[in-house]
């Protein structure tokens, strides 16, 4: 989906806010370079273009749908080993952030440009796909550097994240329209980027499962709910929604 398509997709469903976070792969690893060759990642060259489009689409999203669009990136460190792979979301990012180096340094860079750090799908995603366990393996060391950990990515809740007591967030990790049915974050606060980021940090939020058929929309979920078992898969855009 293109950025304008995502805006219309969520705007027409009356979401209050979305975050668009395209993949930004490491530049100096084999897989990162291959992604750049295959045009599957943002690069330093395409980043200004991406930012500008997010900026103009954010204006359109607000004018047309009264929906906030938060600009972001998904720092993507992929390796053959799941335990060396990590995806980090940076929300509120309007400047280039180098994805290279140790995760700890990358997190500092995101904070230095005023962004919010989120550990994306840090545990088993409950489907058979490439997994990213590196952040969870180092959770004690990195805990203070993350503003939130994904407790749901798509339709599955991650009980181990819920039990760990870290600040949480749920997102749809939507890449295709049929992935819209998923856990969303309800943020209690004003509808603007600054307030949303601040309320994520303060954990002034709750979670809700979004379904396309309105009569089946579930009530906001509380932390002690058990895991559900819907099938789901994803790979490139992440969306945080406020129904």
């Amino acid at each position: 989906m293109t950025i304008p398509e995502i805006v219309d997709f969520y705007g027409q469903r009356q979401f209050g806010a979305i975050a668009i976070t395209d993949h930004l792969c490491e530049q100096n690893t084999f897989l990162g370079k291959a992604s750049a060759y295959l045009n599957c990642t943002l690069t330093k060259a395409t980043f200004p273009l991406y930012q500008k489009i997010l900026c103009t689409e954010a204006e359109r999203a607000w004018d047309q749908y009264r929906m906030v669009l938060i600009p972001g990136i998904e720092i993507t460190k992929n390796s053959i080993s799941n335990h060396r792979s990590a995806h980090v979301l940076g929300l509120g990012i309007t400047e280039w952030v180098s994805p290279d180096g140790d995760i700890s340094e990358v997190l500092d860079r995101i904070h230095n440009v005023g962004g919010l750090t989120i550990a994306a799908h840090p545990v088993w995603t409950r489907i058979y796909e490439k997994q990213t366990f590196h952040l969870w393996d180092r959770r004690e060391e990195l805990a203070e550097k993350f503003d939130a950990w994904e407790v749901a990515s798509g339709p599955h809740l991650f009980k181990e994240v819920e039990d760990a007591g870290y600040p949480m967030i749920a997102s749809s990790d939507l890449h295709r329209p049929n992935q819209i049915e998923s856990w969303k974050t309800l943020i209690h606060g004003e509808k603007n980027t600054q307030s949303i980021l601040e309320n994520i940090k303060r954990q002034n939020l709750s979670f809700s499962f979004y379904q396309e058929v309105p009569k089946n929309v579930a009530a906001p979920l509380h932390r002690n709910l058990s895991l559900d078992a819907l099938n789901w898969s994803a790979d490139s855009w992440n969306v945080l929604g406020l129904p």
């Binding site: 293109t2 950025i3 304008p4 398509e5 060259a45 395409t46 200004p48 273009l49 991406y50 500008k52 489009i53």
Partner: peptide, 20 residues
Amino acid sequence: ILGGYIAEDYMAGEAFQFLG
């Protein structure tokens, strides 16, 4: 934006495709 690239024509094509 295009002024930042040596091949502004190629990037224009990329940019329009970004917009769908």
